[in-house]
């Protein structure tokens, strides 16, 4: 598990008293998907970067399976366990073909070729890009690119996958593709930390933490989150139109599940 223990963080050069994260306590357990939900500037990307030692806390500790991220000698084992995917897939795609890009990480670790081949094939299959191994990444759609970036992280066999707004720059088709991949990864036992400002995405997780001005202001299940609906505005969150429709239908007596904010789920619960 990844543990945040009273973690605070300020960026160098920020005015005195301005902290990106304040006293954050959080646990990311194996086999679970945790969504960290917050507005732009809430500190959620900072939180993501603290999970694998890209940033280290000013106060408090981040422990990855007991390893303290502030211990420089543990940098490699920590980063092998925590894979990271960022908002812009283009920023982390480096090679001229899909399979070469996925192989980049394992190759840098100096793994045997046969092992690299296995890992690459299995990562590409996990994200549903089988058949596109020789495709040039710039010819992929937005959703395919982001799935390629996820495959690159998976090829390192991470125990934890941290994704920082992986769908905010891609179209709705791509969003659905990435969401499906994340659901599959969770089912296969990966721990997933999804950083997002999209309520519809967050409610698909097992647990949700809301972050506002650097502080965790809510932690609980998606059901519990919806009970705090009136605070969404103050947290800089917005119920998406599909979520509003689901609320209205519930108010009219239709049993729409909490996680149903997309047309298919709403439709299937309306006419089940």
């Amino acid at each position: 598990m990844i543990q945040f223990q009273e973690v605070s963080f300020s960026y160098p050069g920020s005015p005195a008293g301005v902290r990106a994260l304040v006293d954050v306590d959080l646990v990311i357990s194996s086999g679970q998907m945790l969504a960290v939900l917050g507005a732009n500037g809430s500190g959620k990307s900072t939180l993501a970067r603290l999970t694998n030692g890209l940033l280290v806390p000013d106060a408090g500790r981040v422990l990855v399976d007991g390893m303290d991220t502030s211990d420089d000698s543990l940098g490699l084992p920590i980063r092998e366990r925590v894979g990271m995917v960022f908002q812009h897939p283009d920023d982390q795609i480096v090679a001229p073909a899909v399979e070469d890009d996925v192989a980049f990480g394992p190759e840098n670790l100096g793994m045997p070729r046969a092992e690299i081949r296995l890992r690459v094939d299995s990562a590409i299959a996990d994200v549903g890009l089988t058949g596109l191994e020789r495709r040039e990444p710039h010819l992929l759609s937005g959703g395919q690119k982001q799935r390629l970036a996820i495959a690159g992280a998976l090829a390192m066999n991470p125990r934890y996958l941290v994704l920082d707004e992986p769908t905010s720059m891609i179209d709705s088709q791509g969003k659905r593709e990435v969401t499906e991949v994340l659901a599959r990864l969770r089912a296969s036992g990966h721990a997933v930390l999804l950083v997002t400002h999209d309520v519809a995405e967050a409610v698909r997780a097992d647990r949700v933490a809301v972050i506002d001005a650097g502080r965790i202001v809510f932690q609980g299940t998606p059901e519990e989150l919806l009970h705090r609906r009136t605070e969404f505005g103050a947290w800089g969150l917005e119920m998406p139109p599909g979520g509003v429709l689901a609320e209205r239908l519930r108010a009219l007596g239709r049993p729409i599940p909490v996680r149903a904010m997309d047309a298919e789920s709403i439709g299937s619960s309306l006419w089940a």
Partner: peptide, 11 residues
């Protein structure tokens, strides 16, 4: 045309 209608419309 390979797009998704807004969720409310799609329902």
């Amino acid at each position: 045309h390979g797009l998704r209608a807004p969720e409310v419309l799609e329902v």
